[in-house]
Design a protein around this nucleic acid. Structure first.
Lengths: 355, 355
DNA sequence: GTTAATTTTGTGGACGTACACGGAAATTTT
DNA sequence: AAAATTTCCGTGTACGTCCACAAAATTAAC
């Protein structure tokens, strides 16, 4: 248990007052070259570490934090991220925070634009971004960079930006993992289907595309590329979807597994249930309420999940750290674990958290 | 963002001084019935929450904490628990802690007794217990209860004790989950083997027994009780084990999956690898270095894991909370999630943590 | 009823950092 | 060289809690 080095100690060693050390630590300027050198010398020798507690206490400032994520629905993916953020707000209730959520519709680029514009207007001191549209996000980040406003990414990373940290998943590997899960639970010659959920404008998210690549890649590596089929279903027209899916299964009787590259697996689960289909594994993403029900009912074999609460929690945590000790640190990209959730271990993923 | 209520506020509302409120909050006694009533009244109304930061600063006391767990080896299960504890020590470096480890041999009841005896001698202010022997642990806990020394359990809970908290896993469900993993990845009529690792005196740990029960129960529930075989292998005599296992497989050609109820799966992985056995799934427990290698090599299909670092981390965290704010709270039993780790998601379980 | 012992209560200093303020030193201007 | 700026620096106070110590109130003892 190494003894804490205090600012006072540093001041003494460098032959200056605590005020000057403080100025250096917070690069507030107004320090002579000589003092700066002396203090930096001492700092490099002793390795000063902030005392987060005292630091937090004496900080009177209230930080404005903007959170730009797709509309969060309780019990769904972005809802879980929001839960994690709320949890962090609570945990760090001693740091004065003014957190505002700027939700946007992830399928409407205009709503994203206007949301991001409001953020700029708001002049926050830090931002959490759950990115969807690449160039919109890049534009926002450029603006934030110009104003030296720190930001972090959750769920995904956008290239050409310089966040303080990011929390995301290796979606390609998710796809491979999904491939493996389906393959091992089916006979050697079985076929598998990628079930795309159709949306307005038929756009597919980047995450889904990556997952799909990984999935196909996995079967290609195992010489089973031909065993992979693809079809789609609608999120909004269940009856039509049901007809389409059942027709597809009839035409492809070899199908023993279905992969859904987003959280819409529960829709297929309903269809399988209604038609009493027993021998097809279904794997989807995200522990949403609907998918939880699908697992409990036994219609979804497994769910892949990427700790959204933890992402939200750590996102805010790292921003707070950055605000308090604004050393210009390197970006840290955190890749979240991919949890495999089936009927048996489901219950224990609901309580536990944090961390 | 609700405004923080301070001790001063409470004091004012209750018509007493901060000192008195402090005494009540830490039940240090020496408070008149009248003041106590008044303060408790106010507390129940406003819902006071400690400011962890200021609390940590002004705490000058150094707490002696004893940690009684089986010998921890780096890269194995108890080593991971130790890592988690060390991490918490680091995270709470502002709270003065004097942590001492009292390791014991989990296969030697005498070493456990002498370890526990040293703890009593040591007179610690709080204890973390990784229990193995039931009555020894009960005796220790009785002693601790008598001295009002708080303690927490990691890995497992012993009945007839009253810890501050516990962090453990539902081993029975682990066994069921293992059953499911093996079953789905094999043909309908496949057979499965429970591979017990033999030890000195042939005792089997409680955890293993529970897992075994769950495993067998799973197959019974699916009308496949007859498909489960059992055999054993030695941890210390690899050559003998290899002979025995291969003979067993020859005699039971229907075996498509092997279950190891502890962390010794890697031994079988080596055997399968050496004999070029390809079509048998092997599932074991705990992300030890050996097992990680087994997964990477493809000889272990999956590992079930119960977040040992998180257990250790939270164990110490909850003890610290209990020491700082020793309100006589109810015991909280935390059941850890059961992570399923396969080749694809393995890399991401090594970095991430905390929380 | 007075004194002693005990219980109860309030006060004030300490923890380590942030930051405002005013004074000292260095620099520029006149 | 003195005055006016500007730059630099040290001091002091605040943050909310803990806890030691002393003062006050209550109870016990005589």
């Amino acid at each position: 248990m190494a003894k804490q080095v205090k600012i006072k100690d540093i001041a003494q060693m460098a032959g200056v007052s605590v005020g000057t050390v403080d100025r250096v630590l917070h690069n507030r300027g107004n320090v002579s070259e000589k003092s700066l050198k002396a203090i930096e010398q001492v700092l490099s020798e002793v390795g000063y570490k902030y005392n987060i507690h005292t630091s937090a206490i004496s900080l009177r400032k209230e930080y404005k934090i903007a959170i730009a994520i797709p509309t969060a629905i309780q019990g769904e993916y972005w809802g879980a991220i929001q839960d994690g953020i709320m949890h962090a707000i609570n945990e760090y209730s001693d740091v004065k925070l003014d957190c505002r959520f700027f939700f946007y519709n992830q399928f409407d680029i205009y709503s994203c634009r206007s949301s991001f514009a409001s953020i700029i207007d708001q002049r926050p001191e830090a931002v959490i971004i759950g990115p969807t549209f690449k160039s919109e996000t890049q534009r926002l980040c450029a603006e934030l960079d110009a104003n030296r406003i720190p930001y972090v990414f959750v769920d995904a990373v956008i290239e050409g930006t310089s966040p303080v940290a990011s929390y995301s998943t290796d979606q390609f590997t998710c796809g491979r993992l999904l491939g493996r899960l389906l393959r091992i639970s089916a006979p050697k010659d079985a076929e598998f289907a990628i079930m795309s959920s159709q949306r307005i404008g038929n756009e597919r998210s980047n995450n889904s595309l990556e997952r799909r690549k990984g999935f196909i890649g996995y079967f290609r590596d195992n010489g089973m590329e031909k065993n992979v089929k693809e079809t789609s279903f609608s999120v909004f027209d269940p009856a039509e979807s049901e007809k389409k899916v059942m027709r597809f299964l009839k035409e492809n009787p070899g199908i023993k597994g279905m992969a859904v590259m987003n959280s819409r697996g529960y829709i297929l689960a309903e269809i399988l249930k209604a038609n009493n289909v027993q021998d097809i594994s279904l794997v989807s993403f995200d522990l949403t309420l609907n998918n939880i029900k699908g697992i409990e009912d036994g219609n979804i074999s497994a769910i892949l999940c990427q700790r959204p609460e933890l992402q939200g929690f750590h996102a805010l945590k790292s921003l707070i750290k950055s605000l308090l000790y604004n050393q210009e640190a390197e970006t840290v990209h955190h890749i979240m674990p991919i949890d495999i959730i089936v009927k048996e271990n489901l219950p224990y993923y609901r309580e536990f958290f944090e961390m």
